[in-house]
Design a binder for these strands. Structure first.
Lengths: 229, 229
DNA sequence: GCAACGGCTTCTGTATACAGGATCCAAGTG
DNA sequence: CACTTGGATCCTGTATACAGAAGCCGTTGC
């Protein structure tokens, strides 16, 4: 309750009272964040009343948020039995990697073709932040952020819209296995950035695909070494 | 109103009273269908009260349906100003083609790798239906259906889940330009099917990509010849 | 004649209310 | 001892209610 109310406050101050972000959106973000950070673990039931009371709102915004999160794939709903945080199965991680290679490769290529100045600047900023980051949570967020920005830099709105949820799910799956790969990630990101900035479509795509493929290999050996928790 | 109630009836009979499909899902399907068939044209405002009365339900299921359709990208919502059927911009069509080439290429490859018997049988059925279809609406639906089934045959759940909405949007954009490409489509589908059935990953992917690329070229020349309606 | 202002209408955002299915526990029965 | 059965409880699905923002329209002042 306090939390949402607080953020609402911040929002309205920040936007000079113009925008009036609907509660439902704040609720959606909040629940998503709780899932992504592991505060709501996989399998946890999302009881509408409890969430509503916890966030200090009525059930309606919570319900709408749950529908949205369900179409994003973060929660699973069973009719008349309610929603629960989705349980990522091992196969899901592999599936995600396949898709990410295809889409992020495309995104990098399009970004290189486009070479949009503002987008490149944002990428540069993320990379600098990534270099300075040291907290585990921040590292993961910035990693996701970089990939998101590449998708944005592609100029393909749909692609950006698709990659967003995909990356969130990937980050979440990683979270479940307490796995990161910070060092290599940064240098590979730098290479991808360089290729995009140089307008080298071919390299950009190849590097992006290789980057995801490397993450996949690393991830697979990680889960193999440390099986089901 | 009658419509939804009727479908509810059918549903509950069909499933022997076990499933009890929530109204919200029926409402979602109904509105989506109305958008996809053009009954609700782009830009049309989705006034909750009117939809609710029209479908014989209250506003809540309608609201939840709108949120879902919004995350699918079929409707656009402006805070405090309500939802409207999305307006596809020309650039969107191109964006969709890029993404479809990447994802459907991947899907065809994975399907060829997998060669699942049941999935192949479903594909075969769709192709046979497609050969017999003659009504414009049916042709478009079956075309979409084939692509969806390929995604399903990939065995990659996420991919299937991603490609579904994508195809719906593509079909819808096509609808706006009153464009189809039935003949070529069928023969190309047959080739893709053959490659998948033969387990030829490389060909399957190449053919799928070429198929979408051909559709793109054809579409672009079509809209060039017959500009903005 | 035109622009600013104020009230009205419409619609969204949010809360509350109520009905009925799902689940669980306990007691009874074979 | 396992298995069913009845009821109580929890929770979802759906409807209704109400407050306040956005847009519209007529009016008023210049």
């Amino acid at each position: 309750m306090a939390r949402i109310a607080y953020r609402m406050q911040i929002m309205s101050e920040h936007t000079l009272g113009s925008s009036h972000v609907p509660l439902r959106d704040l609720v959606t973000d909040e629940i998503r964040q709780r899932i992504l950070t592991g505060l709501l673990p996989p399998g946890e039931r999302l009881v509408e009343d409890r969430l509503a009371e916890d966030l200090g709102v009525s059930r309606n915004p919570v319900r709408e948020a749950i529908r949205v999160l369900a179409t994003e794939g973060l929660v699973e709903v069973a009719p008349r039995r309610g929603a629960a945080v989705a349980r990522p199965r091992p196969a899901h991680a592999e599936e995600l990697f396949d898709i990410r290679m295809a889409l992020e490769g495309l995104a990098a290529r399009l970004a290189a073709r486009r070479r949009d100045g503002a987008a490149l600047a944002r990428l540069r900023t993320v990379l600098d932040d990534q270099r300075d980051a040291d907290q585990v949570g921040a590292v993961a967020d910035l990693n996701t952020r970089f990939h998101t920005e590449v998708a944005a830099a592609s100029g393909n709105e749909h692609l950006h819209q698709l990659v967003g949820p995909l990356l969130r799910r990937a980050q979440w799956v990683f979270l479940q296995t307490a796995y990161t790969r910070a060092g290599e990630s940064l240098t590979e990101h730098e290479r991808i950035y360089a290729a995009i900035a140089a307008g080298d479509e071919e390299s950009a795509q190849a590097l992006a695909v290789a980057h995801v493929a490397a993450a996949r290999r690393s991830y697979l050996s990680h889960v193999a070494a440390q099986p089901a928790t």
